[in-house]
Design a protein around this nucleic acid. Structure first.
Length: 459
RNA sequence: GGCUGGAUGGCAGAGUGGCCAUGCAGUGGACUGCAACUCCACGUACGCCGGUUCGAUUCCGACUCCAGCCUCCA
C-alpha cells in the first residue's frame, strides 16, 4: 500500500512499525463552536483511512484528540459568562452528534487535553531539564527553537526567514522570536492548573505531543490533520516531542486538503463556514459524505449547492442499482475484477475518486445482469455494499433512500398507485396519466418495471 | 517575498508517454401504452510557450493564472 508522506513529499510503501498493526494519531477539534464542513472533511478523510486499513487487515489503534482548553475557549466562555468546561462539554456533545450522523467511526481513544495535564507538565519538565526549554520571567515556559536542528522540516520553511518574517509577534519574554509556549501563566480569572511554574495552562502544541506519545509510544506510524496545521502546529509537535524523547516522533505525516467556498478557504477567521448541522438540514448525511470522498483527500474541494447535488444524483444511481436486490444473507461476488480494481485504487494513497469510478462500472454490470441473471446481479450488489462500506457509503435501505426518509404519506401514494394500475389494466391511459400527475404533484415519480410499480421522491 | 500544491471536455473529477476513466448534463437508438428506471452508441479535454521523443495532456524548462501556509484555523 502506498501513502503520500508530507515529510518526504512522495508516495511511500507503507511499512508499519509492528507488522500488521498501525498506530495513528489525528488532530481533532477545539470544542468551543459547532463543527463545520472543513472539520467534516478531516473527519471523513481519516475515517476512510482507518476503515480501509482495517479492511486491508491491519489492526489499527486510532487516536483523535479533543482540545478542550485554549485561548479561544477561554475567550468564548468569558463572552458567554459561563465556565469554560461547561462550554466545551456542550460542544463535545454536539460534535459527537455530528460525527454519528456522518457515520464517522469512533476513535479507539479520544484523549482530552485537560485529562493530560500531568503528562504535559512532565514533558515540559523534561524539556527544561535537557535545555530545550526555559521558564521565562513572565511565568510562561517556552520551547527554544534555535536549539533544535532541522526545525520546520515538515513545512520546509527556512528558520532564518521565519526569524525575519514580519508576522512573528515580538515578545520581550522570549529569548528568540520563534520560540513558542509550552505553558502559559494564567491571568486573573483565567482557568488553570498548578504547576512548577505557577498556576497556568498548556500551550497549544504540547498537548498533542503529550497525548500522542502517551497513547501510542514515542514513535508511531501515522500522524494526520488538516494541511493548515502543518505549520506551526505539526512542526512544533515534532520539535518538542523529539527533543523530549530523543526518538523519531512520527514515520508518516498525512494532511487533508481544505474546503473552499467561492475560491476561498472555509475557515473560522473568514467567517464563511457552513456548519455540519446546517448542511445536514438540506442534504442527507450520506450525500455530504459522498461529496467529501468524491474528491481525493489531498486536493481542495469546493463547497457549493451544485457539487452537493451531483453527489445526490450519484447516490440515487447507486441506490437504483441496489433497489429490489436483497443482499442480506448473500455472499458478495468473490475475486471480481471490480473488487481488485477497487483495492488497487485504494492501495494507491486512498484514491477514492478512482475507487468510486470502479463502483459505477459495477453498477452498470448489475443493471445489465439484473433481468437475465438475478443471482449473479445480487452477488454483485452485495459486493457493491461491501465495497461501499469501506467508504462509509451505500449501507442504507435503497427504497428508503430514494423516498428521502418518507416525507410523504405512503398510504396515500400506494392507493393512488393502485388506482393508476387499475386504470392501466383497463387500458384507460388518460385516467392513468391523470393519476400519475396527481402523484407528481406530491413529488412522487412512479417506475413500472417488470410488472411492478415502485416509487420515489423527485428532487 | 519564502515554502507547498494546482490549472483536464458544459459541470464535477481520476489518470496515463501512443488505446477507455467515472458521474451529471447533451445527442441518437432500445425498452415502455406514454413516461420513469435501465441498457447500447456518440460528441466535446488536457492553461500558455519552448525542449526531449517516432509520438506528450502525461517527462524537462520558462511563463501566466489560482489556492494553501508563513497569525488562531481541519
Amino acid at each position: 500500500m502506498k501513502i503520500y508522506n508530507t515529510l518526504t513529499q512522495q508516495k511511500e510503501e507503507f511499512v508499519p512499525i509492528e507488522p500488521g498493526k498501525v498506530r495513528m494519531y489525528v488532530c481533532g477539534l477545539t470544542t468551543y463552536d459547532y463543527a463545520h464542513i472543513g472539520h467534516a472533511r478531516m473527519l471523513v478523510a481519516f475515517d476512510v483511512v482507518v476503515r480501509y486499513l482495517r479492511a486491508a487487515g491491519y489492526q489499527v489503534t486510532y487516536v483523535r484528540n479533543i482540545t478542550d482548553i485554549d485561548d479561544k475557549i477561554i475567550k468564548r466562555a468569558k463572552e458567554n459568562g459561563e465556565p469554560f468546561d461547561v462550554l466545551t462539554e456542550r460542544f463535545i456533545t454536539f460534535t459527537h452528534e455530528d460525527e454519528a450522523a456522518l457515520g464517522i467511526v469512533r476513535p479507539d481513544i479520544e484523549p482530552r487535553a485537560t485529562g493530560y495535564i500531568g503528562e504535559i507538565i512532565a514533558m515540559t519538565q523534561t524539556l527544561i531539564g535537557n535545555g530545550s526549554a526555559y521558564a521565562a520571567d513572565n511565568g510562561d515556559v517556552y520551547f527554544s527553537v534555535p536549539g533544535f536542528a532541522n526545525y520546520a522540516r515538515l513545512s520546509r520553511k527556512n528558520p532564518d526567514e521565519l526569524l525575519s518574517g514580519a508576522r512573528i509577534e515580538v515578545d520581550e519574554s522570549k529569548h528568540d522570536a520563534r520560540d513558542f509556549a509550552l505553558w502559559k501563566a494564567a491571568k486573573a480569572g483565567e482557568p488553570g492548573w498548578p504547576s512548577p511554574w505557577g498556576f497556568g495552562r498548556p500551550g497549544w502544541h504540547i498537548e498533542c505531543s503529550a497525548m500522542s506519545t502517551t497513547c501510542l509510544g514515542h514513535t508511531f506510524d501515522i500522524h494526520g490533520g488538516g494541511t493548515d496545521l502543518m505549520f506551526p502546529h505539526h512542526d512544533n509537535e515534532i520539535a518538542q516531542s523529539e527533543a523530549a524523547t530523543g526518538n523519531t516522533f512520527v514515520n508518516l505525516w498525512m494532511h487533508n486538503g481544505p474546503v473552499r467556498v467561492n475560491d476561498e478557504k472555509m475557515s473560522k477567521s473568514l467567517n464563511n463556514f457552513f456548519t455540519i448541522r446546517e448542511v445536514l438540514q438540506k442534504y442527507p448525511a450520506e450525500v455530504v459524505r459522498y461529496f467529501l470522498v468524491a474528491s481525493h483527500y489531498r486536493s481542495f474541494i469546493n463547497y457549493s449547492e451544485e457539487t452537493l447535488q451531483i453527489g445526490y444524483d450519484a447516490l440515487e444511481r447507486f441506490y437504483h442499482a441496489l433497489k429490489g436486490l436483497d443482499t442480506n444473507a448473500v455472499v458478495p461476488a468473490a475475486d471480481s475484477v471490480y473488487e481488485q480494481r477497487f483495492h488497487a485504487a485504494m492501495h494507491d494513497d486512498f484514491n477514492t475518486p478512482e475507487a468510486i469510478g470502479v463502483l459505477f462500472e459495477l453498477v452498470r454490470e448489475i443493471n445489465r445482469l439484473r433481468n437475465t441473471d438475478a443471482a449473479q446481479a445480487t452477488g454483485l450488489a452485495a459486493l457493491l455494499r461491501k465495497l461501499g462500506s469501506v467508504l462509509g457509503l451505500l449501507q442504507a435501505n435503497a427504497e428508503e433512500f430514494l423516498r428521502k426518509g418518507g416525507a410523504v404519506d405512503a398510504a396515500l401514494v400506494e392507493s393512488l398507485i393502485a388506482q393508476r394500475n387499475a386504470a392501466r389494466a383497463a387500458k384507460n391511459w388518460a385516467e392513468a396519466d391523470r393519476t400519475r400527475d396527481q402523484l407528481k404533484a406530491l413529488s412522487v415519480v412512479v417506475e413500472d418495471k417488470n410488472g411492478v410499480t415502485s416509487w420515489r421522491i423527485e428532487r
